[in-house]
């Protein structure tokens, strides 16, 4: 495989993991606009552990994921009491606070960034993405996954059937946080250099948009969305500046015509019957 394609596949794999991290809360009707902030936590925690503390790379990456998950648990239990649009605002604030702290923290390089010595190639990253997909598919096929969709559609009714709505949402948000941390830690150990400026709210926004574009009803949606977003510039080579324009126009059109996204449950069932 050429280095060019390996590079694209690495980005695709990381985007896929990030997409699933945003998908879990989205499936339960919560927008996390702070995914990039959670990725930053995973990236820095993993990089510091493998660098300054000389942990093995695998353990450091796992610890990065756990650190981000713990932050999600903390933020989620504080903020999930207030639902709906407030969560979008709160996660957005978390993204900026995390970035602000990292920018001012001299021990991790502050504004000049932090070099990562340990390095991983495509294969472990691809395996991690596959595992995340399998976990998402597993959860999607479980009662937990079913409950997420029910909450997204009708929170009150779902609660009357005995579902502890806020606990399920917190679980989805926390697992999403673990996945985001994993994506960040993998990113750090492949690109060998991280800086806080990279993990912007705009990045969180594009992750959410790619998931919504793909569709939140099924486990395939985030995969399609992440692939669309990652591969779009390759289809329009030489016009890479247009990438975001086309992507945004695509999102607006999809949301206007078919707010459930590209992949819907009904479409999958039609495909299965046709096959």
């Amino acid at each position: 495989m050429s280095g060019y394609w390996a590079g694209i596949l690495v980005i695709l794999a990381i985007n896929v993991i990030a997409a699933y991290s945003a998908w879990l809360p989205l499936a339960a009707g919560q927008v996390n606009l702070g995914t990039a902030g959670f990725m930053a936590v995973g990236a820095y925690a993993g990089a510091v552990l493998s660098g300054d503390y000389e942990w093995p790379v695998g353990a450091a990456i796992a610890a990065g994921a756990v650190a981000s998950g713990l932050l999600a648990l903390l933020v989620g239990s504080a903020v999930l009491r207030t639902r709906g649009l407030y969560l979008a605002l709160a996660t957005l604030a978390v993204n900026e606070v995390v970035r602000g702290i990292l920018l001012n923290w001299d021990a991790v390089g502050g504004a000049s960034g932090y070099p990562v010595i340990a390095h991983i190639e495509l294969l472990p990253i691809a395996i991690a993405a596959l595992c995340v997909f399998l976990v998402a598919a597993w959860l999607g096929a479980s009662r937990f996954g079913m409950t997420l969709h029910a909450i997204e559609q009708d929170e009150t009714m779902t609660g009357l059937f005995g579902v502890h709505v806020s606990r399920v949402q917190l679980a989805a948000f926390t697992i999403g946080g673990v996945m985001a941390g994993l994506a960040g830690a993998l990113y750090a150990h492949h690109f060998s250099y991280i800086e806080a400026q990279y993990f912007t709210v705009l990045m969180s926004v594009t992750i959410v948009l790619s998931v919504v574009l793909g569709g939140v009803q099924t486990v395939w949606g985030p995969l399609v969305g992440a692939a669309f977003f990652t591969l779009l510039p390759e289809l329009f080579r030489g016009a890479s500046n247009w990438r975001y324009v086309l992507f945004a126009a695509g999102v607006i059109a999809i949301m206007a015509l078919r707010p459930q996204g590209i992949v819907t449950r009904a479409a999958l069932m039609r495909l299965r019957r046709a096959a």
């Binding site: 597993w138 959860l139 479980s142 009662r143 937990f144 079913m146 059937f161 005995g162």
Partner: peptide
């Protein structure tokens, strides 16, 4: 219909199993 049986579905771990 399965959503109706939520109270008989066990704890968080049992709920994380495929249906």
């Amino acid at each position: 219909v399965l959503l109706g049986a939520h109270i008989h579905a066990g704890g968080m771990l049992a709920q994380a199993l495929p249906l």
